[in-house]
Design a protein around this nucleic acid. Structure first.
Length: 462
DNA sequence: GAGTTTGAAACT
DNA sequence: CAGTTTCAAACTC
């Protein structure tokens, strides 16, 4: 999403442009995504009242200047999460477990999901001196009111909304990115000098292998943005390897990082050159390591992260680990926007187009049609996770396709990216022994795919 | 549960 | 910008 310059501070509170709220797949399986240049698909989506709601939301005049939506997240559903009005006396949290166990506290800090995946509870702070109106407070930092926390003297409640707004303004004046997620879900890169992992950690004694380190806590490798000393949180680190051996979940993290990088690249995320460049290697400025996996966001933020087809969450070990939040997953910028049914529609369209081309060429070749059909069948099959039957994300699907059919991707990626960006038809080259029909079909399919992805990117940016 | 360690945030 | 203090989470015993 494009970042527009900050609005005058006179605007007291700014809000997220939350695409996720009303855009999860509904029970009818009808999604709500706008796909420019895809009239047929869009017409289907328009059948959904959800789409109208989306239009209404986008068009409706906002009390806030455009572009300030990322400055401060709203209190987590102040309308749905009743702000605390008094401080209930709560028992102290249970004793935290040791490193090799997932502590109750850890689970508590992570947003917990109910069985149906809906948010159950937000993290609870224990602030005593900050009145929960400083960035020390996790609730405040995340834009939430304190609700059921163990804090004392809390002013991060609706009763003190005025004071809260003033403090927010003050903090925003100091740092307009102060309330962004520390592990920012920023698909366009973190080049704005923001907080958290936009600037990296600054650890000195933990070796970045303890949860003191925000990078480690976020299950990501330290980067050249970090200013840490004696960092061991880089690929190739023996210490980290030892931890990975002890906690396989850590290894899974980096697999996810690589997978997500592929996905982001596949959808033409051209705004993050630095991250893509890191994919392939690079000596960091502080010389910590080379040839790392790409930087990627790994957030314990499942409560507000309804299942998204663009969220890669590879099957994970069932063993609980404090090193990975209970259900850590990467959340794409398109999370909550693209739904399973969109991909199904898209695949159906591909089949239709493929058949039409075949007829046009008067060379209906059953093999060719079957090729397209296989695409759909394969897609549907791939949507089923082997382990739990859950659908796999299109991102994962894309990754798997990428692995299966390398003939699709063996051409020069840069040239294809250029084509994607210029809008010119993708030129298929019959270098794989395809006949003319196959070439035409592939051209059409790839062009459709390009337009589809461009639509998604555009939508995501909006 | 109390005390210590740690590093980000805040302050000077 | 650097050094120091404050703070709350992470961690140890």
């Amino acid at each position: 999403m494009e970042q527009i310059e900050a609005a005058p501070s006179a605007v007291p509170v700014v809000r997220h442009l939350d695409f996720t709220v009303n855009y999860n797949a509904n029970v009818n399986g009808v999604g709500s995504i706008i796909l420019p240049e895809h009239s047929q698909l869009e017409s289907k989506f328009r059948a959904s009242s959800q789409l109208d709601k989306l239009h209404a939301r986008v068009r409706s005049p906002s009390p806030l200047p455009l572009g300030v939506e990322t400055q401060f997240p709203p209190p987590k559903s102040p309308t749905s999460v009743t702000p605390r009005l008094a401080h209930p006396v709560k028992p102290k949290p249970a004793l935290r477990s040791l490193m090799n166990k997932e502590s109750p506290k850890s689970r508590e800090r992570c947003n917990i999901e109910q069985k149906d995946g809906t948010p159950k509870k937000q993290k609870q702070c224990n602030c005593t001196k900050s009145k929960c109106l400083k960035l020390y407070c996790e609730c405040f930092t995340s834009g939430s009111y304190c609700d059921g926390c163990n804090c004392t003297g809390c002013h991060n409640i609706i009763e003190h909304e005025e004071e809260r707004k003033v403090v927010i303004d003050t903090i925003l004046e100091r740092n307009r990115n102060a309330f962004r997620p520390k592990i920012a879900n920023n698909p366009h890169g973190a080049t704005d000098g923001g907080v958290g992992h936009n600037k990296g950690c600054n650890c000195k004694k933990s070796g970045c292998l303890k949860r003191y380190c925000e990078c480690f806590q976020a299950n990501i490798l330290c980067s050249d943005k970090c200013k840490c000393v004696d960092c061991k949180n880089f690929e190739g680190s023996e210490e980290r390897k030892a931890l990975c051996h002890e906690h396989p979940a850590i290894s899974m993290t980096y697999i996810r990082q690589a997978a997500n990088a592929v996905i982001e690249k596949a959808i033409g995320n051209t705004g993050n050159k630095s991250r893509n460049q890191q994919l392939y290697s690079g000596v960091t400025s502080n010389g910590q390591s080379t040839n790392r996996f790409p930087r990627q966001q790994e957030i314990c933020r499942t409560s507000d992260a309804a299942y998204s087809p663009l969220s890669v969450n590879l099957s994970e070990p069932t063993t609980a680990s404090p090193l990975r939040p209970s259900k850590s997953s990467y959340r794409s910028s398109l999370a909550g926007i693209l739904q399973l049914q969109h991909v199904e529609l898209f695949c159906s369209q591909l089949v239709k187009d493929s058949a039409e081309v075949a007829k046009t060429l008067s060379e209906i070749n059953e093999t060719d049609v079957n090729w397209a059909k296989r695409l759909v069948v394969s897609s549907h099959e791939d949507f089923k996770d082997d382990q739990n039957g859950r659908p796999l994300s299109p991102g994962t699907l894309a990754l798997m396709c990428d692995e299966r059919d390398t003939t699709f991707m063996t051409a020069d990626n840069s040239s294809k990216v250029t084509e994607l960006n210029t809008g010119t038809p993708i030129k298929s080259t019959p270098t794989h022994g395809l006949n003319q029909l196959e070439v035409e079909q592939e051209t059409l399919v790839l062009t459709r795919l390009r337009n589809f992805l461009n639509g998604l990117v555009t939508h995501g940016r909006i």
